[in-house]
Design a protein around this nucleic acid. Structure first.
Lengths: 197, 197
DNA sequence: TTGACAACATACCAACTAGTATGTATCTTT
DNA sequence: AAAGATACATACTAGTTGGTATGTTGTCAA
């Protein structure tokens, strides 16, 4: 097991613990202790607690969230079915246990935005990219004749993302994947309304 | 200044600090120190930190959030304009500064749901009441001929609340009241689609 | 084969944090 | 007016938290 392995393993476990306890609730030394290693290893790879949080956002959360939207950016298909497929994919993931832990990005946004400007900007960047990706896909869809011309793509981009995050929030407090899925279904019918008849 | 005043003042300041720093980030002794009083007063009124959180939820957040929906429960008007008016009201409140601090309920939901089952259930109760209130209003609206018969009132109740919370989330990370308002406008047009033509 | 560096382990610590124990002034009740 | 009870203030503390200083061991190039 080489050094990058250890770093990756630490990061993964930090990610999981942050999702459960929040960043402020993260006890980094306990996490590594549970892994069978010590603070020596931890502070060898990360200068301080903040660096752990940043690495989790940049190296785990960001690529995971942007994967779908990078694909979307490449596509010239009708964006409406594409977006709906993504919502279906999120619904599939949404077990009670998963939803109960909340959306990792949303969790951090809520907790850290007012506390740390650096964290906030990193997360805002991810969210902006998602919105822009959706908006751009809708604009391409307009040109290709899939999407109604009067649609405000920017506004839909915001609303789309917000609805997903809000649904995670509801699912979290309800401990209910079903509540999340119900909202995804409604969001899909909302998207249908954007399609050119 | 009588005793209840002091208790109320403590609670208000705790509410504000929790909104900024989260419950885990709350430094109760610092808050009272900034008020010019000491831990003696604090622990005279509240047994421990948990009790502060519960009192904030029950005595500040809950009545504040339920006020509109209690009114809604009483009304037999067309619920669609009513709900839209509420969204307008939320939009008016939504300055950049306000949105940046986030929705107090959503903040706590995100932070505390996985950490404290008692907190979670108190918050879930508030949210359930909101959803039920919206759903019941839509059902009355159906009977009175305002609302399309095929509307799934329960699902709309969930989606309505989730959209608002998600919009606060977006506004918070963006530090933008405008983003929140944009979403409220979209949610209003969504509500319009539920009305009987 | 040696020396330099990476990859950890161990032992410590200062600051913080929630909470307690105890004291005191004021107010209320009898 | 005496006797609690209430409303705080002050001083202390045990446990926690994030972090550091200093090892030790393996690796790998010169």
């Amino acid at each position: 097991m080489n050094s990058t392995d250890t770093r990756e393993r630490i990061l993964q476990n930090m990610f999981l613990d942050i999702r459960k306890h929040g960043f402020q609730g993260l006890r980094a030394d306990k996490v590594v202790a549970d892994m069978g290693i010590t603070k020596g290893a931890l502070y060898h790879y990360f200068g301080n607690k903040q660096a752990i949080g940043k690495a989790v956002i940049d190296e785990i959360i960001r690529p995971n969230y942007l994967a779908f939207y990078h694909e979307l950016d490449q596509s010239n298909d009708n964006p409406i079915p594409r977006l709906k497929e993504h919502l279906d994919y999120l619904s599939e993931q949404a077990t009670d246990e998963d939803v109960t832990l909340g959306c990792p990005l949303n969790n951090l946004v809520q907790e850290m935005s007012p506390l740390d400007e650096d964290f906030r900007l990193r997360m805002k960047n991810i969210i902006d990219l998602i919105q822009q990706s959706v908006a751009a896909a809708l604009e391409r869809g307009k040109k290709a004749g899939f999407v109604r011309a009067e649609v405000d793509s920017q506004a839909i981009g915001r609303f789309f993302f917000s609805s997903i995050e809000g649904s995670y929030s509801l699912g979290k407090v309800s401990k209910s994947g079903a509540a999340f899925k119900s909202n995804m279904e409604l969001l899909k019918t909302f998207l249908d309304g954007l399609e050119k008849p």
